[in-house]
């Protein structure tokens, strides 16, 4: 692809991370992410708190991104910003700020779909997947398998019917008394344990996912075991975590394997914050080796919510001259 000359500032504020990135001619010059640790004390994301934190962070994060990139506002060619899906209040802060910038600098606004940007994060660094490829997007808010035919054509083949997989990790951790977000802690303990407690794998039609049944099974399992031994959780933490992780990873692995078979595709990409999970990486690595997949996992800074991927998506739109009006509205759902 011929690379257009363009300097793009991207903003992402769809959930609880405020992020800004600068991309010049397709290269990320900066990718600043301010995470909101405050939600840990509530045991989950509180939307009003997230919105207020974005308001506190937004100007500082954008300034830091431009500063690190060594770019002045008047050198920018476009502003790319997440318009959805996400939390309405959170999206509103980033999008309103982006519009204020675009209006004042007299440059185009490019509104970006967060889920598409997760997929397009694979184009930031080499090696890049070859079309058509499958992308498993897994995070605290989303779980889906997308068939990516080209950079504009996405078909959601399957998605979660209830909780996202990251949510399943966090909620399971809560049952174990682990602090939010529990996913990384479960991953750590799991590496020290054996997956010797079996939890059921839900049988869901097609390529959709369900995680709520697993969560309920874990809840009853813990209740019953604690009746027998009140110290059960403390004494078996590593094995419980290994069992939970094994189950959740198995659910993801089976579906991506099924998708690959049904669509005869061996280009497999993983995106989203749960791509950091070492159990998932290992399982997909083993599967990929056995089945001759080319497996793509972006650098961690582009897996979790980040503006670098918004810049990438914005750059692709910029090359095609596709811009958004200043009347772009945030939206809660949609691909």
């Amino acid at each position: 692809m011929e690379k257009a000359q363009a300097c793009i500032l991207a903003i992402e504020s769809s959930c609880d991370d405020t992020s800004a990135a600068v991309m010049k001619d397709g290269v990320v010059l900066s990718n600043i992410i301010a995470s909101q640790a405050i939600h840990a004390k509530y045991g989950g994301i509180v939307p009003e708190v997230a919105s207020r934190m974005h308001q506190e962070n937004i100007a500082l994060v954008v300034d830091a991104a431009l500063d690190k990139a060594g770019i002045q506002p008047d050198q920018l060619d476009a502003i790319a910003c997440t318009a959805g899906p996400g939390l309405m209040g959170s999206l509103t802060v980033g999008l309103s700020y982006a519009k204020g910038l675009a209006l004042s600098l007299q440059i185009p606004l490019i509104s970006i779909n967060h889920m598409r940007a997760h997929v397009l994060s694979h184009f930031i660094d080499d090696p890049v997947p070859v079309f058509p490829f499958l992308c498993l997007t897994v995070s605290g808010g989303h779980t889906q398998i997308v068939l990516v035919k080209d950079e504009d054509t996405f078909e959601v083949l399957g998605q979660t019917l209830d909780d996202a997989v990251g949510e399943a990790f966090d909620k399971s951790g809560k049952l174990l008394g682990l602090p939010y977000p529990a996913g990384p802690i479960i991953d750590k303990y799991a590496s020290l344990g054996d997956a010797r407690f079996p939890f059921p794998i839900p049988q869901i039609d097609g390529l959709d996912f369900s995680f709520s049944g697993v969560k309920t099974a874990i809840m009853y399992f813990l209740r019953d075991e604690k009746k027998k031994d009140p110290a059960f959780v403390a004494n078996n933490m590593n094995d419980i975590c290994a069992s939970i992780q094994h189950t959740l990873v198995e659910i993801l692995s089976r579906k991506i394997m099924q998708a690959a078979e049904e669509h005869h595709i061996s280009e497999i990409a993983v995106a989203g914050g749960v791509a950091a999970n070492s159990g998932l990486r290992r399982a997909l690595g083993v599967l990929g080796e056995a089945r001759g997949w080319n497996l793509y996992i972006p650098a961690m800074q582009y897996c979790t919510d980040n503006a670098g991927m918004i810049a990438m998506a914005g750059y692709l739109q910029f090359q095609k001259g596709r811009f958004s009006g200043l009347d772009a509205k945030p939206y809660v759902r949609g691909m």
Partner: peptide, 15 residues
Amino acid sequence: LRIGTSTAKGICYAL
């Protein structure tokens, strides 16, 4: 207030 404030901040920063 969020919409107004964020828009105002963006304008102020750019200009």
